[in-house]
Simulated scan of single mutants.
Amino acid sequence: MARPLVADIDLKALRHNYRVASELAPTSANMAVIKADAYGHGAANCARALAEAGAPAFGVASLEEAIALRDAGISQPILLLEGIFDAGELARVEMLDLWQVVHSDWQLEALLAYRPARPLTVWLKLDSGMHRLGFTPEAFVVRWERLAAAGTQVATEGLHLISHFASADQARSVQFAAQWSTIEQVRDRLGCRICVANSPATLARPATHAAWNRPGVMLYGSNPLDGALPVGVSLDPVMTLRSRLIAVQTLEADEPVGYGGRFRTAGPSRIGIVAAGYGDGYDRHAVDGTPVLVDGVRAPLAGRVSMDMLTVDISHLPAAKVGSEVVLWGRSSTGSVLSVDEVATHCDTIGYTLLTGVLPRVPRRFLE
């Protein structure tokens, strides 16, 4: 009998969330970001489902991720969001018909020195104020003009400005306003097409919707905003991390549970042992009280997460027993939902890290 921990991936929910992104920005082409193995959900299967939902292109972090998608039969355009990491990659970029971001002069010079059989699609990165990748506004204009003149290397009709917001998730952000102003100024100066709306901007910054948007974590049912989702917007959880109780301990008051005895029972207690731990990617920083769902009912974490197991207080659940379903995040078989974002707050992190942190030994089960 297999260990009961599994990550169920709801492809219907994934397509629903993509349709939400598309309905929020009906005049934009919405590139689905599926880097980091589709945020831990399985890139090939998610790409197929998203293609069925109408996704016209995909965004990934590296050539290796793009190759895996091509090998899986994905034919849509794929954008390398960080561009190439070595000039020698350009031949594969051409062979696989990939799009690429250019964010540094060495990438620009490598591209202009390359002699492709047909012009390549290039998106030029503007550092609008995040100060991570890209060119300053004045430098951007100079590089844009060089690329626009490079007809043999660059498909000028595919040339776009791309930039990234550092704080689009915050309702009132001076930094966001400054970045958007910078982007608008460069866009108006060059008359160029742009792609700047990430998940939070897709959800809550309609002014930034443009030729292309690139929703990411929202596709997987995670809310990237500081506050609630906009009125009328609903995202469905795509991943349910599901396991079972494998033992139940009956303890008296003031008994320690788990490594270091961090948790002690307040009175006579029933402690359920769950087949899941940090060796599977569940965050060891989860504090006592972090919620799980046992047979669809909330139960608190009780004690430190260990490599292969964690312990929860099920004293209030007399019917819970060995074999009872435990949902670490996602949707239980009873229909109850525990948001990965809520779990993340108890781990002092964000939903992104929990989703991408689910390790390969946890089997993914793709469901319609």
Rank of each mutant, 00 (worst) to 15 (best):
Y39R: 06
L229R: 06
E184I: 08
R264C: 06
G158M: 04
L245G: 07
S315K: 11
P256L: 04
A286L: 15
V257E: 02
G59P: 08
L225D: 08
D10P: 08
I271N: 12
N198A: 12
D105I: 04
V248Q: 05
A178D: 08
M130N: 06
T290I: 01
L235V: 11
K35L: 09
Y18S: 10
I67D: 10
R214L: 15
R172M: 03
T208Q: 13
M307E: 14
C46D: 05
S315A: 01
V186N: 09
A117S: 13
L229P: 03
F140Y: 15
L81N: 02
A177S: 07
L50C: 07
H209V: 11
G158R: 14
S306V: 09
R143F: 07
A168K: 03
A177T: 08
A47H: 07
K35M: 09
Q170K: 15
V322G: 02
T334C: 04
S28A: 13
S324V: 10
Q153W: 02
L90P: 02
A113R: 15
L367V: 13
A117N: 06
L301F: 13
M239I: 09
G42S: 03
V248W: 01
A320C: 07
S336Y: 09
G323Y: 02
A286Q: 03
R132D: 04
A276S: 07
D348K: 04
T121D: 13
A247N: 10
I350E: 10
G351P: 10
P26G: 10
A113N: 15
I162S: 09
L124H: 13
S104M: 05
K321I: 00
E252D: 11
T182W: 00
T353M: 06
G134C: 13
Q170M: 11
A266Q: 10
V238A: 02
V312H: 04
S332H: 01
I350S: 08
A38V: 01
I9M: 00
E145I: 01
T311E: 15
L120F: 03
D86W: 00
V93D: 07
L108S: 06
L219G: 14
